[in-house]
Amino acid sequence: MAIELEHYLILGALLFSIGLYMALAKRNFVGVLMGIEMMFNAVNLTFIAFSRFPRFADMTDAERLSGHVFVIFVITVAAAEAAVALALAMLVYRNRETIDVDRMDLLKW
């Protein structure tokens, strides 16, 4: 059985759902962040898959590669986001000695 676009899309969907579940349901801040990163990965995977399996025959390689470029940007943003989020986690921890999201309920420091 040949591997088609659908395989990658479903794989991406499953990965995204696992990430979504983690982001929604995990108690630890780092766990939530892991879920978010997983979702990023799922989205990136679909981008790359679409770029590999284009819809139009007349697309140039440069046009097809815009998916890759987008993924590069996503990875950049993910790195920045992870850095800031973990810095926030440190800050919360320093003040509250916890990074459980369901205990960050003071709406202030």
Partner: peptide, 18 residues
Amino acid sequence: MLFAIMLTPRAGRNNAET
């Protein structure tokens, strides 16, 4: 992430759900 976990030792390393 590993750093964040290590630098928050009293927060517990439990990966449980809410």
